[in-house]
Design a protein around this nucleic acid. Structure first.
Length: 575
RNA sequence: GCCGACGUAGCUCAAAGGUAGAGCAGCUGAUUCGUAAUCAGCAGGUUGUAGGUUCAAAUCCUAUCGUCGGCUCCA
């Protein structure tokens, strides 16, 4: 039933996109048609036209669409020969449709028409334009023809459509809600971080609360890595360009790298941590008995990203990977990858995040031999299968040095962001001649696995903020408790409680402002503080606390000792 | 990088060529209050930046930086 519904919905939306195209052609006869498919949450149509005109005229276009709906044209399907279709679109001066026709291998094609509007389309559609009742246009954006940089930039109009007014309303409401969860909004509200034009686009600055949050995450990461046999390492932020020449990055990754020269030499600000970890591996002769070696670093890297792609903490130019490189024998690869997969799943479960797994294969631009690529892909597949994970294959989406498993996480608008990734690399060990001594005394080639389990601290924080709407569980909350006094008379008792708490390593704040309690409660709620401790005449007299939970429940007559114990238990179990 | 929109006080937003304004936050004072906004006063801005048009620019033009929505790219 559900599935049928979503199929019907995409037919509806496809029809809506044709109505949109007809409306635009009516208003702007010079507009050339691109394509107009239904998508996950609606539909779009691409036009080659002055984009400014469209954004100003969105209301007019929508009005025209409603007229077309009223006119109730039937959607007519017609099967004709390709040459006949070519004649029609030539006459109608639709160069993009002609280009699409050329790529169709069949001799026959289908056209759909409504009124005087004709489109090359596989269909299906609803019976008539009158069936499309509840829709709205949302935005205008640029989009390259066929999604290829270098192709002409078309103007894309996005919209959405539903079968009922209620569904439409609900969807629009959901978009509003998502906006409220936007990590940039919450980051500002909760005083966590900023990206200041003064320091530069794509570079985040953490305020005390944001820095606290990072620190909690980072400490958690370090502990979990140590538990799994990783060793902490640290490598410098800049290094000689020479190193990056050897790794191949200067050839394959140059446009994303920040380079600078000192008087004598060129240097690179690291965009990745692997070359540094390789130097650590190479610092001595390694035995098969040492393997696998797992080097972990919260490595801050900088990449020159195109200005248009920057997006809060989700897409930055400077970010910190929870990066590790595992050096192992070829026979250990599957087991090591399995271990990383389990680690990733542990993380996703800990934070209760949804995810999607893909296996990315060899891209057009790559280094290393075909045979080693095939071997690496097999190893990743085996590990995924043995962990019983569902995954999709993304052809040609691998890194230039090896195939990878990507785990994507969802943000508040349902957009997917790459987080954890696991990449097998047979190539860098070759380039740097990384070996170990086998039992028979022979030198053997080591295999390298690059992997991150959260991805980056920044992006992960962003996804987490949106996932939780800023309501961090106690163990993650930068501020765990705020102490509120009812009147100024309780200031000294509150001060004592506060001192006790911070000495017990509770992240507490004291609010003795001369304001009414309602005001302070409201502020603490807006700051999403998990626990408020309310101290008035009663509490001071009886030396107890009243605790208000974030949701509004009250716990009365609690002693400081039992409250501290409760906090400790919850932190321990990450509730 | 490309297409489009936008940039006004710490924040949210007014002011459509003619003296930049409000709410919240901040500060001072009053109030001493029991679970999502107590009252009053004060202060706060070379309208992102740099040029230009004009008697006069937040407003019009150009460039530039940045932000937002996409495309492309990616952790």
């Amino acid at each position: 039933m559900q599935k049928e519904n979503s199929q019907d919905l995409s037919i509806l939306r496809h029809s809506a996109s044709h109505i949109l195209a007809q409306a635009v052609k009516r208003l702007f006869s010079k507009a050339k048609l691109g394509i107009g498919p239904p998508i996950k949450d609606g539909f779009y149509y691409d036009f080659d036209i002055d984009g400014e005109l469209l954004s100003q005229n969105l209301p007019r276009i929508e009005e025209e669409m409603r007229k077309i709906v009223k006119e109730d044209f039937p959607f007519k399907k017609e099967k004709i020969s390709k040459s006949e279709a070519e004649r029609i679109f030539k006459e109608r001066e639709e160069p993009y449709k002609l280009e699409l026709l050329k790529e169709i291998e069949d001799d026959m094609v289908t056209l759909y028409s409504q009124g005087d509007f004709v489109d090359l389309c596989r269909g299906p559609h609803l019976q008539s334009t009158g069936k499309v009742k509840f829709f709205t246009l949302l935005s205008v954006a640029g989009a390259y023809w066929k999604g290829k940089e270098g192709n002409p930039m078309l103007s894309r109009i996005y919209g959405t459509a539903f079968f009922t007014q209620e569904d439409l309303q609900q969807h629009l409401k959901m978009l509003e809600e998502a906006k409220k969860r936007d990590h940039r909004r919450i980051g500002k509200d909760m005083d966590l971080f900023t990206i200041s034009p003064q320091s530069g686009a794509g570079l985040a600055i953490y305020y005390p609360r944001g820095a606290m949050l990072r620190d909690i995450l980072e400490n958690f990461e370090k502990k979990e890595h140590l538990k799994r046999g990783y060793q902490l390492v640290w490598t410098p932020h800049i290094s000689r360009a020479h190193l990056w020449e050897k790794s191949g990055h200067l050839d394959f990754y140059r446009e994303n790298m920040y380079l600078f020269s000192t008087d004598k030499e060129e240097y690179v600000i690291k965009p990745m941590n692997c070359p540094g970890h390789i130097l650590i591996y190479k610092s001595k002769i390694r035995s098969y008995r040492d393997l696998p070696l797992r080097f972990f670093e919260l490595g801050t890297v900088y990449r020159r990203e195109e200005s248009g792609v920057l997006h809060g903490l989700l897409r930055l130019r400077g970010f910190t990977q929870d990066d590790a490189h595992i050096f192992c024998a070829p026979s250990q690869v599957v087991e090591e990858v399995r271990g990383v997969i389990r680690f990733v799943l542990f993380m996703m479960n800990t934070f209760k995040l949804g995810y999607r797994v893909t296996l990315s294969t060899r891209p057009a631009k790559y280094i290393g031999s075909l045979a080693s690529w095939d071997r690496a892909i097999e190893a990743l597949k085996d590990a995924l299968k043995e962990e019983n994970l569902n995954f999709e294959i993304a052809l040609g989406e691998g890194a230039f040095y090896g195939p990878k498993i990507d785990i994507q996480m969802e943000d508040a608008l349902g957009r997917l962001w790459q987080g954890p990734t696991i990449q097998v690399d047979f190539n860098l060990p070759e380039r740097f001649d990384l070996t170990y001594v086998a039992p028979n005394g022979e030198k053997k080639r080591v295999v390298m696995i690059h992997r991150v389990v959260l991805g980056t601290i920044e992006r992960f924080l962003a996804v987490l903020i949106e996932h939780l709407g800023g309501n961090f569980p106690l163990w993650l909350s930068p501020i765990q408790v705020r102490i509120l006094t009812v009147t100024e008379k309780e200031a000294s008792y509150a001060q004592d409680i506060y001192q006790e708490m911070i000495s017990e390593e509770v992240r507490a704040e004291l609010d003795t402002k001369n304001e009414m309690l309602g005001y302070k409660v409201r502020e603490a709620e807006l700051d999403r503080i998990p626990y408020m401790v309310i101290l008035g005449k009663e509490e001071a007299k009886r030396k107890v606390l009243t605790v208000r939970e974030r949701k509004g429940n009250n716990l009365k007559n609690i002693t400081l000792g039992s409250f501290l114990q409760m906090l400790k238990d919850k932190v321990k179990h990450r509730e």
